[in-house]
Amino acid sequence: MADQSDLTTLMRLARQGNEDAYRQVLGRVSLWLRSVVRREMVAAGRSAADCEDVVQETLLAMHLKRDTWDETQPLEPWLRAIARHKLVDHLRRRGYRDHVSIDDQAECLAAATDPDADARTDSRRLLESLPDRQRRIVEEISIEGRRAAEVAVRFGMSEGAVRVALHRALKALAALYRKGQS
């Protein structure tokens, strides 16, 4: 049996339909991303206040582009390439508007441990601009933690339709990030 703590092995399991493996992959990647993104943003002379937004945008890209990972290769170089692409994108989009100060750094460190910080994230704001049905489906599944089958019953839809709507919503979110409405 292969070592299941290895990220590459976990992602292979996830690709075979193992939800828990996928949850673990995303959790561990988000931890790693958080430290890398903050370090890189500070190194680029930018405020790290919105590092969580970059983490979320990168997780979303990684999810939507998961077919581009060659399963015969280790996962990490692929992850690093996606993170770099999204970080460069983000820094370019934000231009030179934000300036780094000690206060910003303090705010970011505080934000990282603030459980109520979600109200200020880009994803929260972008979610508001999705069609009502899509937004509510995402909220039911992500924030309320309901399963797709339960959401289907609540909304009087088939489970398949819920999943299609969820997938469309995630793609729309990625497109909104790209347009720089954040």
Binding site: M11, A14, R15, Q16, G17, E19, Y22, R23, V25, L26, G27, S30, E52, V55, Q56, L59, L60, H63, R66, D67, T68, D70, E71, P115, A117, D118, T121, S123, R124, L127, V138, I141, S142, I143, G145, R147, A148, R163, L166, H167, L170
Partner: peptide, 25 residues
């Protein structure tokens, strides 16, 4: 949206769907 919430949405969207790039091309 918190990152943990986003992860739940991504998990619900399923990692297994979609086929490898090479075959689709």
């Amino acid at each position: 949206m918190r990152t943990a919430s986003l992860i739940e949405a991504l998990v619900a969207d399923r990692a297994a769907r979609g086929r490898p790039l090479a075959r689709g091309l």
